[in-house]
Deep mutational scan, measured.
Amino acid sequence: WIARINAAVRAYGLNYSTFINGLKKAGIELDRKILADMAVRDPQAFEQVVNKVKEALQV
Rank of each mutant, 00 (worst) to 15 (best):
G27A: 09
F46W: 10
E55N: 12
R10Y: 08
Y16R: 01
S17E: 10
Q44F: 13
F19E: 00
D31F: 11
T18E: 05
R4L: 15
W1Y: 15
A39Y: 04
E47K: 10
L30E: 14
I34W: 14
T18A: 09
A7N: 12
T18V: 11
A39V: 08
G13P: 00
D37A: 05
W1A: 15
L35T: 02
V49K: 02
L23N: 00
I20D: 09
T18C: 07
V40D: 15
I34Y: 15
Q58N: 10
T18D: 05
A7D: 14
K33W: 13
T18L: 12
A26K: 03
A45S: 11
V53C: 08
L14T: 01
V50H: 01
W1S: 15
A56D: 04
Q58I: 13
I5W: 01
E29W: 12
K25F: 09
P43Y: 05
L35D: 01
N51M: 13
G13N: 11
Q58V: 08
R4P: 02
R41E: 14
G27H: 14
Y12R: 04
W1D: 15
Q48M: 07
I28K: 02
N6D: 15
K52G: 05
L57P: 02
V9Q: 00
I34E: 11
D37K: 13
R10I: 07
G27T: 06
A3G: 08
A36D: 03
F19M: 03
I34N: 11
L23G: 02
A45T: 11
Y12S: 02
S17K: 15
Y12I: 02
I20R: 08
N51S: 10
L30C: 13
K25A: 13
A8T: 03
I28E: 04
N15A: 07
L14K: 00
V9Y: 01
L23I: 12
L23T: 03
N51H: 13
R41S: 12
V59W: 08
I5K: 00
N21T: 13
N15W: 05
W1K: 04
E47W: 04
Y12L: 05
L23H: 01
L57Q: 05
V59A: 14
E47D: 06
V49M: 09
Q44A: 13
Y12N: 02
K24D: 10
G27M: 08
T18I: 10
L23Q: 02
N51T: 12
V9E: 00
L30H: 05
N6P: 01
W1G: 12
D31G: 08
